[in-house]
Design a protein around this nucleic acid. Structure first.
Lengths: 149, 149
DNA sequence: TATATTTGCATCGCGAACGATATAATCTGT
DNA sequence: ACAGATTATATCGTTCGCGATGCAAATATA
């Protein structure tokens, strides 16, 4: 191999990219059950924590552009999980709020992280290692966010 | 908070998902320079390591379905980076091979990992931590692959 | 108070990513 | 030898993800 640095296994990005898709695949059956996608699940988690927030707050928390979030929210509104309405104090803002259907989903979703975690934690990867992994990723994310501000 | 487990920060998946997108964003300017996307860069890395392989080998190495890889390869063929041709020994297979243009790109790409690494490694995340992060992700990936086989 | 700039959201187009499905070539068991 | 299963790839439709761009409301500045 002439260019060792150009090998999948020698790079950080590919494992992150592959792991992301594989973990989301693990979510799939649970989310199918609720009739939502993974990005939609993320939006709901944000709203379950803080309801009645503008589009921008959601895109900031999920580190997604508004041109990704807007269509996502429209689909969720069409499915009846959320409502979108212009802010009266600032007509530029669109406030997103949970419907009853969206709120009720929280109860159904409550068991997902538990189920997932027990599926991920194994003999090769215990809870401590998992937390260390999470912490390192968060450090990396914060560094990249700050760097490109 | 009623359902602590349903918080973005308490889960592993979101950091992996967000980190994946953020790191790929870091690649963006370098890849734009070469006229390729990140998944296309992955395909090229596979081919630079082993040329003349069937579609399935590529999708296996990248952990992507063929219905993702086939259109990806078609776009790369249209751009002149690769060629696709039916195998003679097994007419089901389509063999993918680099063109001269695709091979030449390797030289141009050689400096990317170096540039990226120096951009990612920082005071908050040194090389050792980065390698540990990579190893844990690879363990997780292998576990998930094996589990769902 | 006009004008310029910024902010917040949306639209468009393209390239992934993947489930469902199709089709042809190959292999398997009888 | 041949019907049925398997393998390899491709097509279709939907949902992201994002760069480029547009537009109206709010804010800053002259």
């Amino acid at each position: 191999m002439e260019f060792e640095q150009l090998m999948l296994d020698n790079q950080l990005c590919f494992p992150v990219y592959a792991a992301s898709r594989l973990i989301i695949r693990e979510y799939q059956p649970y989310l199918d059950n609720l009739g939502i996608t993974y990005p939609q699940y993320l939006v709901l988690m944000v709203l379950w924590e803080t309801d009645n927030i503008p589009v921008n707050d959601i895109s900031q928390k999920l580190i997604l552009n508004t041109n990704t979030v807007t269509p996502l929210l429209k689909r969720m509104e069409a499915e009846g999980f959320i409502k979108r309405q212009r802010s009266e104090s600032d007509e530029r803002k669109v406030i997103v709020k949970l419907t009853r259907k969206g709120k009720l989903l929280q109860v159904k979703a409550a068991s997902i992280p538990e189920s997932l975690a027990s599926g991920l934690v194994s003999d090769t990867m215990n809870l401590g290692e998992m937390n260390d992994l999470k912490d390192k990723l968060c450090k990396l994310i914060n560094y990249l966010l700050q760097k490109n501000r």
